Computed example of a mutant assay.
Amino acid sequence: MSTTPIVPRQAQHSSRLAPAIFELLNPIPYGLFVGTLIFDVTYMSTRNVFWGKGAAWLVTAGLIIAIIPRLINLGHVWLQRRRRVSRIEQIDFWLNLAGIAVAIVNTFVHSRDAYAMVPDNVILSVITVVLLSIAHVAMSMNRVDLAEAVHE
């Protein structure tokens, strides 16, 4: 008689849907925040209200879309215990969270009237993009390191 407990098939394998949704939605806010930065710089140089309003819409859409991947990442990094989470994954979580916090402040700056948002909007957009860029580069390097370790 075997003393190994019988584990249901679902408990043996982690969900594949959550990582798929995360990988699908995670790059979208980054692209929208980069677009916000481009629109903010254009608005600063042209003073055309179109670019300021467009930047406000982009940063807002980026924040809305960022909710789902961040919740999935929260569950993956801090709540699940199936596998060990690397230090880089934790740093990625905190950098993304900091970038989103800066983007929230940037949304309030974009609610100002006309040219009153300049230069704060550009500074906040740069900070957001830099934080998210560092997080994406760190995770990419982590994936490369993991792929090399698997092939060795």
Rank of each mutant, 00 (worst) to 15 (best):
V122F: 02
S140G: 15
A55K: 06
L79I: 04
F22M: 03
S111Q: 12
P5W: 01
S111T: 06
D113A: 10
S140N: 14
I123H: 15
T60S: 05
V41C: 11
T107A: 14
A149V: 04
I91E: 06
R81S: 10
E148N: 11
Q12A: 13
M44N: 10
N121A: 11
K53G: 05
R112P: 03
T128P: 10
A114F: 00
L37R: 03
S133K: 10
F50N: 11
R87K: 07
V130K: 13
T46I: 10
L124F: 04
I123K: 14
H136G: 10
L71Y: 05
R84Y: 06
Y43R: 10
V85G: 04
G31N: 11
S111R: 12
V144H: 15
S2C: 12
T3W: 04
S125Q: 01
T60L: 10
V126I: 07
L17N: 06
A18W: 06
V137L: 12
V7L: 15
T60R: 06
P27D: 11
V102M: 15
D92N: 03
I68F: 10
I134V: 07
V144S: 13
Y115A: 06
S111K: 11
Q80H: 06
L131E: 01
R84N: 07
P119I: 00
L124M: 09
S133F: 03
N73M: 02
R81M: 08
A98P: 09
F39W: 00
R83L: 14
I100D: 14
I64G: 13
I64Y: 10
H110G: 06
N96S: 06
L24G: 05
A116V: 01
V85C: 12
N121Q: 07
A55W: 00
T4R: 15
N48E: 02
S125D: 01
V137E: 09
S2L: 15
L24D: 08
L17H: 13
N106Q: 03
D40I: 00
V130A: 11
V126W: 02
E152M: 12
V77Y: 05
L124Q: 02
A149H: 06
N96Y: 04
R87L: 09
G75Q: 03
S45R: 15
R84E: 12
K53E: 08
N106D: 06
R112F: 09
E148D: 13
T107V: 08
G99C: 08
W51T: 00
S2M: 12
I28E: 04
V109M: 08
H110I: 00
V144D: 14
Y43E: 01
W78T: 01
K53C: 07
V122R: 00
R81C: 09
D120H: 10
L97M: 10
M117V: 07
T128Q: 09
N121W: 02
N96G: 12
F50Y: 04
N73D: 12
P69L: 00
N142E: 08
V150L: 07
E23V: 13
I6Q: 15
V85S: 11
L58M: 08
S111I: 08
T46C: 14
I134G: 01
E89L: 05
I123P: 11
L24T: 05
N96C: 13
V59F: 03
L124E: 00
I88F: 09
R84K: 03
M44H: 13
P27N: 04
E23A: 15
V59W: 02
L25V: 00
A103G: 02
V126P: 06
V122S: 04
A116C: 07
I72F: 08
I38T: 07
A149M: 12
I104M: 15
M1R: 03
M117H: 02
G62D: 07
